[in-house]
Design a protein around this nucleic acid. Structure first.
Length: 426
RNA sequence: GGAAAGGUGGCUGAGUGGACGAAAGCGCCCGCCUGCUAAGUGGGUAUACCAAUAGGUAUCGCGGGUUCGAAUCCCGCCCUUUCCGCCA
């Protein structure tokens, strides 16, 4: 959601910026509805004022015991009341209309974001490490997962359906190890506070982060009108919904582990093998609330926080700056981290680090004051994965595999896993 | 799930139909005073929208209703606390 004043005063700019993302916005329709709304509101306020004055006068007459005068004054209020009710009806309709229009406006891209249409126009900012060389044909993780008894896809399909892998044995333990390692790293070395959020959230929370109303089809919904979280971003961002924060609290930095649930409705048949695209997965999510003028610095440092995990694990990756056409509606600037997965033979998107500026803050009403009695401002909100485990699992076992089918474990994970080599269990 | 009590500003808490956006206290901010500290003292201190300004409107958990008029009465929902039941 953008600032209404910005829409009102600089619509040409908004239209141009939205166009960079390839989005056509209903500019004239919005401006017309907005100006009608404002004049309606002024009218309505005047009517209400008149009504309030009459009521007060009646109260005074009653107090003075002038019953008859009070009664005749009462009789005169009927028409006013009717007018107010009529206008209130129109106001409600108009407001809903305006809100619907507002939701069609994407967040505006930052000036540093390259123009482009789709992923082909993204810019590789840097590459870390090199593709590992193998003296043999590296296997994909689904084969390693089966031979090493780490993953049981048929069992998952039986229990839940496709896209629900079962991690077994050392696979399950590796999963826990990755989560613990990442949470410990971000909280102990990077200043994040740990949060463990609910997995079911209400609609208000999803509206706050921008997942509703537009992306309902991606979500699992329960019969109690709660939704399974698609990412910890949703509950963690909403921790501070409807709050006015104090200056000294900023920046607030949270690291949260959660399961994530996605219907992947639009992606049926794509990346169906192994862990590449599944309905339930685990992720450590980083969320920051910060001062507007610092959000792009915080964005870079969050990116570095996520990158460090891959570096410590010795995994080759690249950082991609998404172009305007590929970054989605909600963000101002977004980096993707793509890890090399040798068996799959592709870079896999493993993290998106996004600066939303005030877009989510405005929806979720998360504000701050610079000083006592000063004006409220919206904080800037950023989030990024740090990281998602399925593709990390994939890159890890594929990168560290040996010709005999065993997999080495990089240093940071050894103490969590209790071993430095995964072999076929006897 | 059953029963009861309750949800008012940053916090505590008064307010059961009219001058209440809301007493009082605490906290916080600005000033005065005391040589410093503590105390004292005067004032200020919710949010959003509309308006060039003055100002106006709305908001007492949320939604609806009654009324000329609702924090206050009625209905529905949500949440909290306590007790009981059930349960990892």
């Amino acid at each position: 959601m953008l600032d209404r004043k910005l829409l009102r005063e600089q619509m040409d700019f908004v239209v141009a910026q939205a166009r960079r993302k390839g989005v056509e916005v209903p500019a004239q329709e919005f401006l017309a509805a907005d100006s009608e709304f404002r004049s309606l509101k002024t009218q309505l306020d005047d009517l209400r004022k008149a009504m309030n004055e009459k009521s007060k006068a009646i109260g005074m007459l009653m107090g003075q015991g002038k019953k008859e005068e009070a009664e005749s004054a009462k009789a005169e209020t009927g028409e006013l009341k009717q007018q107010i009710q009529d206008l209130e009806g129109r106001e409600r309709d108009l407001e809903a209309h305006i809100t619907n229009l507002e939701l069609l406006f994407p967040n505006l891209p930052h000036e540093s974001v390259p123009d482009g249409k789709d992923e082909n126009d993204n810019v590789v900012v840097r590459t870390w490490g090199e593709k590992p060389e193998f003296a043999f044909e590296p296997k994909p993780h689904w084969e390693l997962g089966e031979s090493l008894k780490l993953l049981d896809f048929p069992a998952g399909a039986k229990i839940s359906g496709s896209g629900f892998p079962v991690y077994v044995g050392m696979g399950a333990k590796l999963q826990r190890a990755l989560i613990s390692y990442m949470i410990d790293f971000q909280t102990e070395s990077r200043g994040y506070s740990e949060v463990y959020p609910p997995y079911l959230v209400n609609a208000e929370s999803l509206i706050g982060t921008g997942n509703l109303p537009k992306f309902e089809e991606d979500l699992y919904k329960t019969q109690d009108n709660l939704y399974l979280v698609p990412t910890a971003e949703v509950p963690v961002t909403n921790v501070h919904r409807d709050e006015i924060l104090e200056m000294w609290q900023l920046p607030i930095k949270y690291a949260a582990y959660s399961g994530c649930f996605r219907r992947e409705a639009g992606a049926a048949g794509k990346d169906t093998r192994g862990l590449l695209r599944i309905h339930q997965f685990d992720k450590v999510e980083l969320v920051k609330f910060c001062l507007p003028e610092l959000s792009y610095d915080e964005h870079e440092s969050m990116l570095a926080d996520a990158e460090q995990v891959l570096r410590d694990l010795g995994l080759h990756y690249r950082v991609v700056l998404l172009c305007t056409g590929d970054m989605g509606e909600k963000g101002c600037k977004c980096y993707d981290l793509e890890v090399w997965s040798p068996g799959v033979g592709r870079y896999l998107e493993i993290s998106s680090v996004t600066n939303f500026e005030a877009y989510q803050a405005r929806r979720a009403k998360i504000r701050f004051k610079r000083e006592q009695g000063g004006p409220t401002e919206f904080v800037h909100i950023l989030n990024g994965s740090g990281l998602a485990t399925p593709r990390l699992f994939s890159a890890l076992v594929e990168t560290y595999q040996h010709a005999d089918g065993s997999v080495s474990i990089p240093d940071p994970l050894k103490r969590y896993l209790g071993t430095d080599l995964l072999t076929t269990p006897q």
